[in-house]
Simulated scan of single mutants.
Amino acid sequence: MKIEALKEDFIIELEPLYDVDETKNLFGLALEHVLEIHYNKIRLLGDLDLSYLQVQKLLTVLNDLKIGRPIQYILGEAHFYGSVFKVNESVLIPRPETEELVDWIINENLPDVRVQKGLLDIGTGSGCIPIALKKHLPNFAVSSIDISGKAIAVAVQNAKAIGVEIDFIEADILGYESEQKFDVIVSNPPYIRALEKVEMHANVLKHEPHLALFVADDDPLVFYNAIAAFAKTNLKAKGQLYFEINEYLGKETVELLKAKGFNDIVLRKDMHGKDRMIKAKV
């Protein structure tokens, strides 16, 4: 079977779930994974004949896509800030908006690359944030906390594969205490209110871990409150706190940080023009 013919099958079968451009992108990712060749190189080779085994693997991907399973979980990997991360249903799929947060932190701290510093990530997940930061800011000693042992197991694998050293800690930040001081604390905690579920794609609701996504409607900033309190105690003088935030709660998150005594608070929009990131200093 030729590539183009199978691509058309993907487009027809996935029409109820995805538009044509999305389907072509999904097919390209699947083809890269199965052939182990970058899609741009595959295109240069023309309309190849696929082997029986390759076709069967791609049809298996198609069947999983038809039930709404995210392509990253099907392939077992996701691209984030220039690296490939192993992912499964125990961790969130890394998002481009989070890459923007990582990029912000890296650019703000590159001038001090020769100075040894400490960084704590709260909410490890796949390890995408702490691993990307350690890779690009090797002068930082990086620790990362997550309540989920399964998530930490995935992150440990990713750190080893990418070749960075992270101190992973299984703990609940809502009750975590430490005497260690850090120069930077960063977190992308759960922040989606239950009332916002109606805006979300069904495949996210069905497959991604709710523990890492949702908070109660009546206390949506519960993690920001706890992390800010922890940061107030555990950041060094002039230390930096970075958050990814709920786009609807930017003002409320800024007010929370002001009430905790943080200074130089910056609310930043993401590539879509949504309030998505905050930086503050002690």
Rank of each mutant, 00 (worst) to 15 (best):
L6Q: 14
L6M: 12
L14C: 05
L17N: 06
Y18D: 04
D19W: 03
D21K: 11
T23Q: 11
L26D: 02
G28A: 13
L29W: 08
A30M: 01
E32R: 09
H38D: 15
Y39Q: 04
I42C: 06
L44D: 03
L44H: 01
L45E: 14
L45P: 07
G46N: 07
D47I: 13
D47E: 05
D49M: 13
L50H: 07
L53N: 07
Q54S: 04
V55G: 07
K57F: 09
L58E: 03
L62E: 00
D64Q: 03
L65D: 00
L65S: 00
K66P: 04
K66W: 01
R69V: 01
P70C: 02
Y73G: 01
H79T: 05
Y81R: 12
G82Y: 06
V84D: 06
V87L: 03
V87W: 02
N88E: 01
V91P: 08
V91W: 13
V91S: 07
I93H: 03
R95G: 11
R95A: 06
P96K: 09
E97R: 01
E97M: 03
E100W: 06
W104L: 14
I106N: 12
N107G: 14
L110T: 14
R114P: 03
L119C: 10
L120M: 05
I122L: 08
I122K: 11
C128G: 11
P130K: 11
I131E: 11
A132D: 04
L133G: 10
K135S: 11
P138S: 12
N139E: 12
F140K: 02
S143T: 14
I145V: 09
I145Q: 08
G149Y: 06
A151E: 02
V154D: 03
K160A: 15
K160F: 11
K160N: 14
A161S: 14
A161H: 07
E165A: 15
Y176S: 06
S178F: 08
F182Y: 15
I185H: 03
S187P: 09
N188W: 13
P190C: 06
Y191I: 09
I192Q: 05
I192C: 09
A194L: 10
E196P: 09
E199W: 13
H201C: 00
H201L: 03
A202C: 02
V204P: 12
V204Y: 05
K206C: 00
E208D: 13
D218F: 02
D219N: 10
A226P: 08
I227Y: 07
A228S: 15
A228M: 03
A231F: 08
K232N: 07
N234D: 10
K236P: 03
G239R: 03
G239V: 04
Y242D: 04
E244H: 01
E244K: 00
E244Q: 01
Y248C: 01
G250W: 05
T253S: 02
V254N: 08
E255D: 11
L257M: 12
L257I: 09
F262Y: 14
V266P: 01
V266T: 13
V266N: 13
L267W: 00
R268E: 14
R268Q: 15
D275I: 13
K279M: 12
A280C: 10
K281D: 11
